[in-house]
């Protein structure tokens, strides 16, 4: 079995950024057409599903297999890489290692047994409120709310998308009317509350003005989707809601 690939450092860093807040170990599903992973945090509050097509790689050649990756170890070497670096990944079957090369630096990383690692199922959710907006807008809303509360509401109505947070003394409200959104689809008002800690982790890999899709229901999880690696990869993020305190 073989896996040989070259990828831009920043794409691999995005993969780490998306995954590491939720889990310390992850199973990479290596396929002929690319790689994918799905992880749920230990509290079962958030799920991330990431696809990276082989076109996102500079070079890609692989058989179907699973690699158990210790994210912290991969991160340790990726921290030493710079934007623009090309990272080479090679599976060493004999020693069950992943050989990671960044420039002249090589790390032969021991792999983790994937036998005990879970295959989380993605729940099918009915989320009737849908918006597409610029990533920078949601980042602004979460950052503004973070200083006053530990949770915020995502609200989709038939003519706007809102982020609303209420602290002990202050209120933050980001209201984006339909014409400032890329897209809005909603037949009424949908509202759910979410933990800002989790949202913060989710928005970290969002860069600039890439479009992101947010789906909201009433007291239901939210489903956030965005492209990575110049649309050659895709991330789906599910986050369970908080319930209103009495």
């Amino acid at each position: 079995m073989s896996f040989n690939a070259k990828i831009k450092a920043e794409i691999l860093k995005t993969l780490i950024e998306v995954t590491s807040p939720l889990v310390s170990e992850v199973k990479l599903n290596i396929g002929k057409d690319g790689i994918s992973l799905r992880a749920v945090d230990p509290a079962h509050v958030a799920m991330v599903d990431l696809q990276l097509n082989k076109e996102a790689f500079e070079e890609y050649q692989a058989d179907e297999m699973e690699l158990g990756i210790d994210i912290d170890r991969l991160n340790a070497i990726m921290r030493l890489s710079s934007t623009g670096d090309i990272v080479s990944l090679e599976y060493d079957e004999k020693n069950n290692r992943l050989i990671v090369k960044v420039g002249n630096l090589t790390r032969k990383m021991a792999l983790i047994d994937t036998a005990g690692m879970p295959d989380p199922k993605m729940p099918t959710l009915d989320l009737p409120g849908k918006v597409i907006l610029k990533a920078s807008e949601i980042t602004k809303g979460v950052k503004a709310s973070e200083s006053i509360s530990d949770h915020l509401a995502l609200i989709v109505t038939d003519d706007a998308f809102e982020v609303f947070a209420e602290g002990d003394t202050d209120i933050v409200n980001l209201k984006l009317p339909k014409d400032s959104l890329v897209e809005l689809e909603s037949d009424g008002k949908y509202k759910s509350l979410f933990s800002i800690d989790y949202l913060n982790n989710m928005i970290k890999p969002l860069k600039g003005d890439i479009p992101i899709t947010i789906k909201v229901g009433n007291d239901n999880p939210t489903r956030v989707e965005f492209d990575i690696a110049e649309s050659k990869g895709h991330v789906i993020y599910l986050l369970a809601p908080r319930i209103e305190s009495e």
């Binding site: 199922k121 959710l125 369970a240």
Partner: peptide, 13 residues
Amino acid sequence: DHQKTLEEFSEKN
């Protein structure tokens, strides 16, 4: 206890 888990929604489904 205010934070729900994804499992609760999987079960519902």
